[in-house]
Design a protein around this nucleic acid. Structure first.
Lengths: 208, 208
DNA sequence: GTCTATACTTGGATAGAC
DNA sequence: GTCTATCCAAGTATAGAC
């Protein structure tokens, strides 16, 4: 049961091919989660999208769950990097809310958060998956905490409520909004909330 | 393909038996969703818990999805009735937050919201399920909107933010918190948020 | 090391027995 | 009208070919 990627006996050709197959499968796993959810993300469904035989899922990842976790890793890395860029120019709570709204819209359009939501919900039905998913969410909460601390740590709000708790709540809200918006295909209620948040941010700035 | 419950040819005995089988299946569907999620809620898994043969799922409900929707209906009805009672004695924003916290704890303990979350996430993988689930969530949002309007409609917050938007956000937050708390089995971060909300409610009351 | 063909299991659904 | 025996599709996983 040799793991792929082991160093011995690898030709240039086979090494490159393996890596590409893995990449293809990971990409296909992401789109499968987006299109048919965790429940529909079988080895067959993913492999078909990837254009490779179904057995390769098990050869390269050992199980469907592992492949889905790899997909989650890929999306997390991609998004966190992007969030970092999006927040680079932020200099006020108002900017922060605006950036959050833009990022939310992107996430919804591209279905990035769907992947996360499906994995969280799906974790209930696959033994051992829960902790793995939980671990992969922590960076999102940490990122949010830091962004909040930077822009609002010194404000009246930051004085009353610990950043860690707020960050947890914001991520929860983000996931919930994604879930509801995705469910009925209407993002307007969610975007309305961002607009109100912008108003409150303006109000808060006026106080300081 | 006669639907059960048709009036003709029914003995007292058979009518009672059918209703009881349906009830048993619905209850089993709820616990199955709670224990193994949407992905694990197969006709066989549910029927085993109900102690009835698997084919009865299709006889009585036509499909697994229909049975799961019936389970969601049962939970929704039960919870909305209970929420109504819990809010009967509420006379201030502070009371409202306290009641919400109690209800949240109950929901988490009994796994009621898990059913909802699993159905929302699972809707992605079953064609046609989305709208059905969306329809069943609307009452939760309406209920929240009314509760908010009653206690905070006249406050500064109510003046700035439309109740409908807030209600949507609160339900989203509620679902997200349930999802995260359930995932890593730690409800403390969520409960901390309710504590902060209580403080803010107190603050708001001081202003009015 | 990489991948394909095949074994085995579980699940949805229904034809027909009671 | 109610339920059971059975069928077929879809899923996971691996033994063995290249």
């Amino acid at each position: 049961m040799a793991k792929p990627g082991s160093p011995s006996q690898l030709t240039e050709r086979s090494r490159g091919r393996s890596a590409e197959t893995r990449r293809t499968l990971v990409t296909a796993a992401v789109t499968t989660l987006q299109e048919v959810g965790f429940g529909g993300a079988s080895a067959r469904a993913i492999a078909e999208r990837a254009g490779v035989p179904q057995g390769l899922v098990f050869y390269h990842f050992g199980s469907v769950a592992n492949l889905l976790l790899a997909a989650l890793d890929a999306v997390s890395a991609e998004r966190l990097a992007h969030y970092g860029e999006a927040l680079a120019g932020v200099e006020s709570p108002q900017d922060l809310v605006a950036a959050a709204r833009d990022v939310f819209t992107e996430d919804l359009d591209a279905g990035y958060v769907t992947v996360l939501v499906e994995m969280i919900a799906g974790a209930s039905s696959t033994p051992g998956l829960g902790p793995e998913v939980a671990q992969r969410i922590r960076p999102w909460i940490d990122f949010t905490r830091e962004a909040f601390t930077r822009q609002l740590g010194g404000s009246p709000l930051g004085a009353v409520v610990p950043a860690a708790d707020v960050a947890y709540g914001i991520v929860a809200l983000y996931l919930g909004l994604e879930m509801l918006s995705h469910l009925d295909g209407d993002r307007r209620p969610a975007l309305a909330l961002f607009a109100h948040a912008a108003n409150l941010a303006r109000l808060l700035e006026a106080l300081t």
